[in-house]
Simulated scan of single mutants.
Amino acid sequence: MTTRRALLAAARWTALALACAGGALHAQPSGDRALRLIVPTSPGSSADVGARLVGDRIQAASARPVVVENKVGAGGSLAAAYVAAAAPNGDTVGILGNTYQLFAEEFPSQKFDPVKDVVPVALISRGANVLLVASDSGYGRVDDIVRKARSQPGRLSYASAGIGSSTYHSAERLRMASGLDLIHIPYKGSPEAVQEVIAGRVDFAFAPVPVALSFIQGGRVKAVAVSASRRSAQLPDVPTTVEAGVPDSSYDTWLVALVPARTPRAVQLELNRVFTAATATPEIHAKFASLGVEPEDAGLDETQAFVAREYQRAKAARARMANAK
């Protein structure tokens, strides 16, 4: 039975959705409570940049305060668990990458179930991770890394944004597909991992294209390959890991807005309209393109069907990796 609280939440979000969809900067705020966007990674990371861009657009269109909060730790599972435990009124939204779907297996102590505890309400963007090496490392291709790793098993190292992050899974897909023995060194976020590559303390790292671009353009690192199933529009000359000669090594990334599972469907629908209205603007399209990611505008049912399919794919890939160890 719909409660009065749920009806009020839906009414607030209807007002906000209409403001965003119409670009009505003069619209009344949908309440004095801030919309909190919970990000699992450090400032400057792909999820953080995406959340801030979309949050700025939502705030400009609705006049409602939008606050981005970075809750870093345990590969993103701390943020996911925080969102799951929030009040189901639409005021707290997690902006997470697809890796949240495997948190139950990778961080069992968090007691987080990606199917029962949260529900996706909007796809934000799709992107890719790029394999980076230091400019003076001597590596020029994926094959250089593979050959050296095979000649020195257990000696080469890679950095990631932590176990469970998309950068970790990109590297693990490459490692498993190549049959390599590598040392994994986790960091708080991708910016920190890239700095370790530059400093020469690790051999390579995967990083989201938005994070990597400035380092690549500044000549501090070289882009060797992208982990996605297709090339990045921002790095058209950089091959995919499959094109570079490693079959079954691709790993696609996407960003999604999540809310507590008990959030009323009416609120879910309005949140979907809010986020898709924001990502549909020419401003966001241009900014996302400059960062190497593609905005999404799927409806609620389409979003939830897509995420459900991807969950089954992620579980299957996880099982294959476990069996190969």
Rank of each mutant, 00 (worst) to 15 (best):
T3M: 01
L8F: 09
A9G: 11
A10S: 03
A10P: 00
R12E: 14
W13Q: 04
A19M: 07
A27Q: 09
P29N: 04
L35C: 06
I38P: 00
V39Y: 10
S42H: 04
S42L: 12
S46L: 12
S46C: 14
L53F: 12
A61K: 01
A63V: 00
R64Q: 12
P65E: 15
E69M: 05
A74H: 06
G75L: 12
S77Q: 08
A81G: 06
V83F: 05
A84E: 04
A85E: 14
A86Y: 05
D91F: 01
I95E: 00
I95W: 00
L96G: 01
Y100M: 10
Y100Q: 08
Y100H: 14
Q101C: 10
E106D: 14
F107E: 11
D117M: 01
P120C: 13
G127R: 05
A128P: 03
N129S: 11
V130K: 10
D136G: 07
G140T: 08
V142R: 03
D144W: 03
I145D: 09
A149G: 07
P153W: 13
G154V: 15
L156R: 02
S157H: 13
S160K: 11
A161H: 03
G164A: 04
S165M: 08
M176F: 07
S190H: 12
A193Q: 09
V197G: 06
I198M: 00
R201Q: 11
A207N: 11
V209W: 09
I216R: 13
Q217W: 06
Q217I: 00
V226I: 09
A228Y: 00
R231M: 09
S232P: 05
P236S: 11
P239A: 05
V246W: 13
Y251G: 06
Y251D: 12
D252K: 04
L255Q: 14
L255C: 15
V256N: 11
R265Q: 14
N272L: 02
T276F: 02
V293I: 15
E294D: 08
E294V: 10
E294N: 00
T303R: 09
A308Y: 04
R309N: 14
Q312R: 15
R313S: 07
K315A: 15
R318H: 10
R318Q: 05
M321G: 10
N323Y: 07
A324I: 04
A324S: 14
